[in-house]
Design a protein around this nucleic acid. Sequence first.
RNA 1: GCGCCGGUAGCCUAAUGGAUAAGGCUCCUGACUUCGGAUCAGGCGAUUGGGGGUUCGAGUCCCUUCCGGCGCGCCA
Length: 722
Amino acid sequence: MPLTTIRERSAAALAAALQAEFDHTVDDIFLEIPPNREMGDLAWPGALPLARVFKKAPRAIAETLAEKTLWPEEIDRVEIAGPGFLNLYLNRSAIFRQLLEGSKREHGTGSKTIVEHTNINPNKASHIGHLRNSVLGDTLVRCQRHLGHEVEVQNYIDDTGVQVADVVVGILYLPEPDLAAALGIEIARRDDLIEHVVGALGGDQVPHASTTDFDDLSWEIYPRVTNLYPEDEDFAGRRAEVLHAVEAGCDGMDLDEAVFSLKGSVISGEAFSERAIARLAGAVAESNVRCHLATMARLGVAYDVLPHESDILHLGFWTRAFELLKEAGAIRLESDGKNSGCWVMSLADSPEFADMEDPDKILVRSNGTVTYTGKDIAYQLWKLGLLTDPDGTLHDFGYQSFATWEQSAPAEPVRYVEGRHTLARTTSSRAQAISGLVFGNGRTVFNVIDVRQSYPQKVVKEAVRILGYSAEADRSIHFAYEMVALTPAAIREIEKRSGKSFGLTDEQMAKAYVEMSGRKGIGVKADEFLDILEATAADAVAARAGESGLPDDLPRRARSIAVGALRYLMAKQSRNRVLAFDFDEALAFEGDTGPYLQYSAVRANKIFDKLRARRGEGPFERTEIPELADTELPDDLWALVLECARRHDVVRQAVDNLEFSLLAGHVHNLAQLFHKLYHGHPVVPEEDENLRRLRRAVFTLFADEMKIVLEELLGIPVPEEM
RNA sequence: GCGCCGGUAGCCUAAUGGAUAAGGCUCCUGACUUCGGAUCAGGCGAUUGGGGGUUCGAGUCCCUUCCGGCGCGCCA
């Protein structure tokens, strides 16, 4: 916070001087961080472009401004450098003391920000591609909250799509040998196989994540189904049958009853009951959702509400959105041409779509059903608080508690136990509500969805605009990120580990990376990868334990390191680059990695442990500030202090650009600066009390800063020991 | 065909239009009888795919071209 304030004040002072001395108005004065310490702490290159305007040498302009500007008191001196840069030097001890005082919490704007992320199809286990979505989304949530915004986290559940139906098709119609193989059991009659599947569904609790959960079972079934579709026409026909049943709904049928009915149908050879199929599909989706929550919980990722697509359908969200679109004249019914019989939204007036061959987007098919984009428009309108009924009230869901959860610290795993936080789910009964909780109606909405969804996301945004909500459309933000792909080396590694072959061609394996595919089953399961990561981390800890033996809290340490490695890897890479996943790189704990950062924080904390044991001194206390010697901080200590002061600027910049590599760079700088100081500035052995106090103060600042950036913002735990 | 994203050292990545393009990996040389070597110091290695342009200043903006990826469904 200090640096932001000084920047703003300096910019304002500079603008005033420009006005007074040159009668010139500049409204966006930006002070940058110079590339080199010798060039000051802040810099302004603005005199250079003004040279032409004023017909004066840039250095002369800079000199006048340096002299005439009423600089804030934190600016010690100003120098002119090079062709006309204005280099500002801060009063080190003033900034240092301000930081040691601690920063006040930001207070919010009162408006709510909605972040939608994760959104995994509930038809199979999550893979590392989903992890990128959840980690980016969760990091955004953390940064927004740090900046003082109220944030609501939504995880959209597509429980009525064909993907869930495909798993149900597999359970009911996949040839018994295939299904048994997918389940990993001996071949049996279908009613026994169904019984096995139902047994794996689990209860209505969020389970502890493992690699033998229901989502892992679905992971095996799903690709077998999609692979059989092209080969077997009858089998392929089952998809429509199941989908139809799912859409009709189960009408409150009990799961036991549904299973009994399905098994009875197997024995009697009759057709399956539609309601029973729908009930099974619901159970499959819900069980997968719980597994996904468990996986993300390992990374410290939690949610506020799970909007269900089935509720969007049953509660007429689309019907209402359809009316609004018609009233606004945003859509029209085509009577001829290739889209005959469809309701389309014309995008011809939107600059971004105008050049397209066909700027019309179909929202309602000729058979009367709504497309995915149509549903998404309705959902987006609800998120923005724009889905109103004719009487002006908001068209809303019913809600009930799905689970409650706890998190003992910002980067600890989320535990779905009796906790004080409620995870709500939507329901189709508007009468249901959770006391004290309201959802939707956000001022700004971030949709964390991969870049391949850019086109439909633009359509949704444009629909909001066409309805007359231009400002809301601008605040509908698609947080796009590139996909996660696998390097050929990673593919070979998975094939080796799993013992199966994905049958990729030499041509595919010659490329730099191969796209993951849930349909083909090519991918690294999130839980599987986290297990490997934890095991590797545990080995690394054990290798360093030496003769003292394995620590009691080995699993906990391993988990922290694994999460640190993964979350940092995801945060540090720019979002619009393909993340080519490589095991060796992901499992590296040295260099520019999460564990390096964690180690630096642990190392700093260790200083205070030793200090307490040998001298009875702890971290620097605020009350000691007056005792600090009033000498200028040396360059190397100052570099670390200044980097600490930059946090607020960095977080804001990261959020503005949706680019967490900036935050990663900041925390890496911090760690590097600290390690450089470590050898030259010993604390415990230092006998000079003033010097020791100064070093304690700097390292306390560093340790606190690391705790905030790693745990609170990046969700990376700082372990006690490593 | 149209659109979006990427191309930076042997490899992976960073850099709000600013000063000497910054880290990591690899390789080489060093540093613990002082707070943990998952560390640090040093070295090798790049005219940022090619070509034009705008600018006092371009990896960054514009044009063009080449390479790679992804979109442009009455799929979800």
